[in-house]
Amino acid sequence: MSALSLSTPILRIKALNLHFDEGRIKALNGVDLDVREGEFVSIAGPSGSGKSSLLNVIGTLDAPTSGELVFRDQPYSKIGDASLFRRENIGFIFQAFYLIPTLSALDNVIVPTIGCDGTADEYKAHAEALLTQLGLRDRLHHFPGKLSGGERQRVAIARSLINRPRMILADEPTGSLDSANAAQVLDILTGIVKEQGLTLIMVTHDATVSARSDRIIRMRDGKIEQGASA
């Protein structure tokens, strides 16, 4: 029995439904899932199977139609301010990076801290440290247009970590990268996640990526076919 399996669940999902168009479209249809603290879970499945929808609901970007979600003993239904919850607990990484093109790499990393209580110097130092750790020390003031795909995704990873979240939600983070860059980004991401004891839930089509996760969840038609329990 591994140490991971003994750890407490960071996320518990029961009978989760996400329906659109008055119930005609069932993006999620009765999903049950437990994710443990520090676990790396990959979600695989064909397009339209509900992978990204599940990630969006976990990340409070979408509100479920019904079902129960609990994050560290806090039911989602009791979350007053979803934005604040995201800022304090969740880091997002997207396939298309979603960097702001007119901001430097450093400023892109700092953006999520705008409106937070800390000082600008504090956030700047943290952002520089993260970018340095991700091998972008000499790219701090480069704009996204001057960075390679791998470098952009590393900036996005740094951005997801700036507010010291407990859980990273990554939607096909290597989907836009060539295999060499994909491997490098994955190495960096998994390394940081392990080092900081973070939970990583990653949607991926790539079998080599999901093979590196602690658990693979397979979805189809809005349901989990395999890997629901740790």
Partner: peptide, 19 residues
Amino acid sequence: TREIGILLALGWQRGTIIK
């Protein structure tokens, strides 16, 4: 629209968007 969505996803509060 998408940029605002990114900011919200990154944890920006609605009040910060208004500001």
